[in-house]
Structures are given as structure tokens and as C-alpha cells.
């Protein structure tokens, strides 16, 4: 029984340079109490997917498809209905926490904000709950921390505070958009710990958006690999890392330091003029003749779905 299901999601940005197909037929589901990692390199469209689920679109975005939550297609909801879902049912944390937090309000104020506006709690009550949340996030002196401003805390602390804020209403789904980008090794471990903690407390599912394969490996149950707007492979994390199916997945894992930094030839394709047929075939070591004619569909391969002619 899936909590959230994206069905054939398309998002295009109409720019003077052309139509950017940022999300090109993406489908996936997130089950209850599970973490799905959406992994891909810069510009593959993963953040756009997150924005689509939250209903956050820029002016020049055109979308099509469905995102089913609670039996409804939330893409069709009006702004008011969507804003009721945001924060309380589906919540999001962003990269660069120091910028996502408002510098003129204290941590306590920001963590308790949702509690005051949505649940109508009184200020003191809301603060108490916030301090509780902060404690779960690993802060020891919660009273002092709640009274501090973002600039007084380090990047890692701000990130934890932001996670606390987003967990305030115990959302069913937490979307984490590159939560560890730019953070050092030890901080990455901290954030990972806090997120698992958050998951345990409120039983939320997590959609983790990242380019960091090791992070995905550590905390996700299932993993989806995105390339140039498409999902190329989606399946269980452990099996994926043991033996990836799609040539791009294999090449990506080979670029890791453990496997010797083996480079993938060529560069990511333009999203305005994408290659004919399979988007990865120009760089693929196993491309065949018909890889350039017609896009391969997602096909089942064991317990996974792979978009490749080799598995069609």
C-alpha cells in the first residue's frame, strides 16, 4: 500500500532558449515507513520532482501527470488545499540550512511556527513541544538553543533545527533535498542520524534527493537512479549496490573512489535537445543499434524496474 505515487510525471520549463524537459515521464511510489532515495547528478531533474510533489512550480513550468496522495491527485489541488498539506502531511527540508532559516527569528520561534499557525497552540505550549523536538535532534541545552538565532549556530546545528521544524507536525512524508550538500564528513553522519531518528519518532517516510551515493546506501530502503529527467532504474538498495542493472548505474558506481574513480566518457546531454532514443546511449559502452531509435520503456527485471533495451 503506497503512501504517495507519482504516475507519468512530466515537467517542462519554457525558456527563451527552448523547452527544457526537466522531468520526462517519471513514475515511482513511496510506501509507508520507508525511505526512497532519488539519486542523480546535477541537473538531472531530481529537485524538480521534489518541487512538483510540494506543488512548488516556477512561472514558466508546465506539468502533466499525477501525484496521488490519500487517493487524490495533489497536482490538481488549488493553492489553499495544497498549503494545508504542506508542512503537516508532506514536509520538506532544503540544502544550505543557514539560508533556509529566517535570520531574524530565533530557532525556537521557527520550529514552533507551524504548531502555532496550524494547530493553534499557544506560544508557550508550542515552544515546549519545539524544545522536545530539538532534544530528539540531539541538542542538549534546548532552552538556550531555542532562544538563539541561526547565525549563532553552525551549519550542522541549523540543519538539525530545520529537520526539527519540519517534523513539528509529524508529517507522513519528509522530502529531504540534498540535506548534506556542502557538509563535512562528520556532519553528514550527524544529519543521517537525525533523519533516522526523526523517522523513528513520527513514522514518516522519507524521499531523499541526493547525488551522494554513499548517503543513499546508508539510509535508504529503495533507490531510484535519475538521468536527464528520467528514472533509469528503481529497486531495493542492497540489491542495487550488489549488482546494478542499468549501464549508467554501473558506470556511476564505478566512478566512486572505492572502484578507482573510473570516468564515464562524454557529458550529460542537453535537456532541450536530448538524444534520440535512449538518453544515455551516446555514452554507453553497451549501446546497440536500436538504442537510438525510440525510448525504451520501464521493464521489470527481477524485483526492479529498468529502462534499458538490454532488459526489454
Amino acid at each position: 500500500m503506497s503512501l504517495l505515487e507519482a504516475r507519468h510525471l512530466f515537467v517542462e520549463f519554457w525558456t527563451p532558449a527552448g523547452r527544457v524537459k526537466a522531468v520526462d515521464d517519471v513514475s515511482f511510489e513511496i510506501g509507508k515507513d520507508e525511505t526512497l532515495a532519488l539519486v542523480g547528478e546535477t541537473g538531472c531533474g531530481k529537485s524538480v520532482v521534489a518541487g512538483a510533489i510540494m506543488g512548488l512550480f516556477s512561472e514558466n513550468a508546465h506539468f502533466k501527470g499525477e501525484v496521488i496522495y490519500n487517493g487524490k491527485n495533489i497536482l490538481e489541488l488549488c493553492e489553499r488545499e495544497m498549503s494545508m498539506i504542506r508542512g503537516s502531511e508532506i514536509s520538506m527540508i532544503f540544502q544550505n540550512p543557514s539560508l533556509a532559516l529566517n535570520p531574524v527569528y530565533t530557532i525556537g520561534d521557527q520550529v514552533s511556527e507551524l504548531l502555532r499557525t496550524r494547530c493553534g497552540r499557544k506560544k508557550r505550549q508550542a515552544l515546549k513541544i519545539s524544545e522536545n523536538l530539538l532534544q530528539h535532534m540531539g541538542f542538549s541545552d534546548t532552552g538556550t538553543v531555542a532562544g538563539m538565532y541561526p547565525f549563532q549556530l553552525s551549519g550542522g546545528m541549523n540543519q538539525r533545527a530545520m529537520i526539527a521544524a519540519s517534523m513539528a507536525l509529524s508529517p507522513k512524508i519528509l522530502i529531504a533535498d540534498e540535506p548534506t550538500k556542502g557538509l563535512d564528513g562528520s556532519l553528514v553522519r550527524d544529519v543521517v542520524r537525525e533523519m533516522e531518528c526523526a523517522r523513528e519518532i513520527s513514522g514518516s517516510s522519507i524521499l531523499l534527493i541526493t547525488h551522494d551515493l554513499s548517503l543513499a546506501r546508508e539510509i535508504s530502503d529503495r533507490i531510484a537512479i535519475m538521468y536527464s529527467g528520467e528514472i533509469l532504474e528503481i529497486g531495493g538498495t542492497d540489491e542495487f549496490f550488489k549488482s546494478p542493472s542499468h549501464p549508467y548505474s554501473k558506470a556511476l558506481l564505478n566512478s566512486l573512489p572505492e572502484r578507482g574513480f573510473q570516468p564515464i566518457p562524454g557529458q550529460s546531454p542537453s535537456m532541450i535537445h536530448s538524444p534520440q532514443g535512449c538518453k544515455f546511449h551516446p555514452r554507453c559502452s553497451r549501446s546497440m543499434e536500436d538504442c537510438s531509435s525510440g525510448r525504451p520503456a520501464m521493464a521489470r527485471h527481477g524485483k526492479r524496474m529498468v529502462r534499458c533495451r538490454l532488459f526489454a
Binding site: 547528478e41 558506470a251 556511476l252 566512478s255 574513480f261 570516468p263 564515464i264
Partner: peptide, 11 residues
């Protein structure tokens, strides 16, 4: 840089 780009750069 991204992982695959990093690999290219280092080589």
C-alpha cells in the same frame, strides 16, 4: 563536482 565528473577531472 558530481561524482562522474570528478572521476573525469581526476584522470
Amino acid at each position: 563536482l558530481d561524482i562522474s565528473v570528478q572521476a573525469q577531472m581526476l584522470h
